[in-house]
């Protein structure tokens, strides 16, 4: 049952995220007595033939993925290796470089700005992930219960996700404006404020996180909705017969069954949280007083303001490690669940 849930998740994810999709379809063992790729029964006597077939199949498969694989190597794998190389050099704009070993990394560990931006990123992620997942879960449950115009509402909730982040950030900047902003004007009616949402060091991160959550919850919502729909009706029905209330059914039946999907969503959103940049770039430029200066912003500044490409690459690799750790945790937990 749980497996069905994860499988339903897989085709939706589209981003090539490692570990989420479970075993690839081609990897299933077609031993004696099984079926080959064309659905014909394979007999034990045809062992050699089947091996040749399998090899051919593998080559055909490779041919199909070759364009993507090539793109991946040229535009992902190559640059990643390049960045790893850059991170151990002092690379100048003119193309000259000197090997400095772990120099960039030791400088990074002693750089207050790095720790500050890492802290900002962590706080942001802690704010952003619960907001997004709560919003996604809430809307998913509502959509699951509603039958009336479900498609319309699903589309409506998903709309922010396909909006450009820059556009969304500009609109939220207007909403948060101190003088005559939508939010402050509304608060003014209640006799509160004006509140300087983006100009206050303590409010800036929650404000940006809320805007990002609004922008990003649609994706997780769809995944959670798929998860909810894969929970068999009998289970909840049985709980109802046993006298469980609506909340009890949700808390003790739906939520545990939704756990793997929920966990997948949490990890994906955490990874996105750690990569935050554009919302801050547009809304606050990292301010005030670097209160919204994220790790990727630090990377951007190191590379494109200070032309310190080696140093920026080192930051990039640290970010890569952070995201990798999250992915591995996710892979372990989801993988274990699917077995």
């Amino acid at each position: 049952m749980r497996k069905a849930a994860t499988d339903e998740v897989a085709p939706d994810e589209g981003g090539g995220l490692p570990g989420a999709s479970g075993p690839p379809p081609g990897a299933k063992d077609t031993g004696p007595g099984g079926r080959d790729g064309r659905g014909r029964p394979v007999t034990g006597a045809a062992g050699t033939r089947s091996r040749i077939m399998r090899r051919r199949e593998a080559l055909a498969g490779l041919a199909f993925v070759a364009p993507m694989l090539l793109l991946f190597i040229v535009f992902r794998f190559g640059p990643t290796l390049g960045a790893a190389f850059l991170s151990v050099t002092d690379y100048r704009l003119s193309g000259e470089w000197t090997f400095i070993g772990a120099g960039n990394y030791t400088r990074l560990l002693g750089d207050d700005l790095f720790w500050e931006s890492l802290g900002v990123t962590a706080v942001y992620t802690v704010l952003y992930v619960p907001m997004t997942v709560a919003l996604a879960l809430g809307t998913a449950v509502l959509l699951h219960r509603t039958l009336w115009m479900r498609g319309f509402f699903r589309g409506l909730f998903f709309l922010p996700y396909v909006t450009s982040i820059v556009l969304a950030a500009v609109i939220w900047k207007w909403i948060y404006e101190v003088q005559d902003g939508l939010l402050n004007a509304s608060l003014g009616v209640l006799g509160i404020g004006p509140v300087d949402f983006l100009g206050s060091e303590s409010l800036v991160l929650p404000s940006i996180a809320a805007a990002s959550a609004w922008k990003g919850f649609g994706y997780s919502m769809l995944i959670l909705l798929a998860g909810l729909q894969s929970i068999p009706r009998e289970v909840t029905e049985a709980a109802t017969i046993d006298g469980a209330s609506g909340w009890q059914r949700f808390r003790w039946v739906t939520l545990p069954l939704l756990r793997p999907v929920l966990f997948f969503v949490l990890v994906i959103e955490a990874i996105l949280g750690f990569q935050v940049f554009d919302a801050m770039y547009v809304m606050t430029a990292g301010g005030p007083v670097r209160a919204s200066y994220s790790l990727v912003y630090f990377l951007y500044d190191s590379g494109f303001k200070f032309f310190d490409f080696g140093y920026a690459s080192a930051v990039g690799l640290v970010l890569f490690l952070v995201v990798l750790v999250f992915s591995l945790i996710q892979r372990r937990l989801i993988g274990r669940d699917a077995d």
Partner: peptide
């Protein structure tokens, strides 16, 4: 140009009264 990235946050710190 690079200097500006260092001065700006400090000006903000003065503006907010930090």
């Amino acid at each position: 140009r690079q200097l500006m990235a260092l001065i700006s946050p400090e000006i903000q710190a003065a503006l907010t009264g930090k």
